[in-house]
Design a protein around this nucleic acid. Sequence first.
DNA 1: CAAAGTTTCGCAAGCGCTTGCGTAAATTCC
DNA 2: GGAATTTACGCAAGCGCTTGCGAAACTTTG
Lengths: 336, 336
Amino acid sequence: MQITLKDIARMADVAESTVSRALNDKPGVGRETKLKILKIAKENNYRPNQLARGLAAKKTNMLAVIMAEMDSPGNIEIVKSIEKAAEKQGYQIILCNTNNQEEKEKSYLSLLESNQVDGAIFIGGKLVGSHLLRASFSQENAIVLVNRLAEENFFTSVLTDYSQGIYRAVEHLGKQGFKKIALVCGDKDDLIEEEKISGYKKALSDAGLELNDDLIFSTAADRQAGYDVFLEIIEGDVIPDAFISTRELTTIGLVEAIKMGGYFIPDDFAVVGYGDNNLTSVIDPPLTVLSEPVEKLGQYSLEFLLKLIKEEMDSQQIKVLTPELIIRESSISKYN
Amino acid sequence: MQITLKDIARMADVAESTVSRALNDKPGVGRETKLKILKIAKENNYRPNQLARGLAAKKTNMLAVIMAEMDSPGNIEIVKSIEKAAEKQGYQIILCNTNNQEEKEKSYLSLLESNQVDGAIFIGGKLVGSHLLRASFSQENAIVLVNRLAEENFFTSVLTDYSQGIYRAVEHLGKQGFKKIALVCGDKDDLIEEEKISGYKKALSDAGLELNDDLIFSTAADRQAGYDVFLEIIEGDVIPDAFISTRELTTIGLVEAIKMGGYFIPDDFAVVGYGDNNLTSVIDPPLTVLSEPVEKLGQYSLEFLLKLIKEEMDSQQIKVLTPELIIRESSISKYN
DNA sequence: CAAAGTTTCGCAAGCGCTTGCGTAAATTCC
DNA sequence: GGAATTTACGCAAGCGCTTGCGAAACTTTG
């Protein structure tokens, strides 16, 4: 059996409450007593039962980060940034991977509902809001959304300005002389994807380029999808001369397919990818990418979450961060 | 305020115990009553407080996966495999990233000690055992180690046979005619790394190749380290003609450096990497790798953990899995 | 139809901790 | 040196749930 507060109290010959106060560094315990208690606790390798503690205190100092895709290196970076910030504030982070399954999202949500964590940050996931919003807890619980749009501005969010990012990518490709720029994004119903498409369209228009809806492709977010979409594209009617691929893994697959097909980047197809991860600079040629402000996404989301928890802020705060376009060889036209 | 068991009990006009039993599908509740309770609970969107539940029942149906490196795609795959298996068994997984910090490892360990999770799987991490072993809880708690050697065979473990893997890699390179095969691994004091080195040495000897200790390089496990070590190597006295790089990110960095230096793979340097991830096949040329049995590592570790929890097994079980050598262009000699 | 068995349910203790409140002891003040 | 504070500590309730036990209601038997 685990050793408990009560045991320590008995050994130190004081009341449980005193032990509790001593251990939690709360006032109302004499110096002598406190030292004695701490000593005994240490000697006996006492570990408070966090469940009981959480139950009684109604807080756990733990935060959940619930992410839709663990494969995406960018998301990992966001998590690391959150962890770093959380550590400073004395919070522990637990990660939950939903694999884009709504089912799992709900189940992890129960961590929040049942007070096992004091707050939660959602990273990505397109199953936006619907059930979240409906659920009553939404008002009472501390939730921050990262890169995830809800229908209503209901939740505090930290967002990457995809529209702006894509706009710049198109602009850049336009200047390089590319005419038929394809956009490879996700499900068009998704709000985030709509954003991307809107930036894309606006940029095309501003650059005086023709818009062709057939050059907008929706795929899943994995590598295979990127591979497959290229095969589909070269079979199609309109062959692009440049790609903007807006998810990390999809980009890898796309590049892979282009090379497997015997084509050259950027000579046959220019490519602008998404997310400046470990891969992009190793790929041949080095990839031009929209670099997500991962560090800041993490920092802001944690900052907001803590404020929500401490009730120093009300909901609906929204922060938008702009991705940076990092230009490498994959998008530089040889005719330039 | 959250709605509680007591509230439901009042509404249904039954005792709390009855509600508890109904909700948990335990016998002793009439069909009628049960239906009524379930209905009311649903209508009121009742969520049991898992803290209280865990406290009372002494189990939480949650497992922790504590990993040393979140960047490594192979580890992510292991986690996903664990999650998949856990889901079938009705367990929830929470992830904890230690970033190789012993400090954090301890702190996450408290999840176990304080009964917030029923068991824990450690993935990687070189800060082997020391404090774990000493701590008294080790006997009582369900812990499984993945790819992590402890000094004593104290914990149930699932391991990749690095020695065997490296052996095959050397053998392969030897057959291809490479003579000066360098090994890029981690800290030599680490048991896991000792394993790798032993496989390396044995293979060299069996292949009739000369062993040169100067061809064994210890680096950190990140990409930068891989990059740097190459720069160091080409400045050195003995220039290898092939590399075996035993960590995923390090391999990326190494390849990057080789290419940046204007060298060609495999003509100037053959490369055998580690971990068959999203990157390896996109790299130019496609990388020969030792592929970790990630799926199985996950499956076995979860299986063992559940057995430990259910006390169907005692500790010290060890399972060793062999990595597969996937041969691609990066290690094929042009003179062959 | 009474005895025996079975079901259904409530009572109450308890999981390990926190915290408001009250009292005894130690400290301060004039 | 006694009243007024302040400090140190214990008491006990309570966090929301589970579970062993016993009582009441119901069903089955010969």
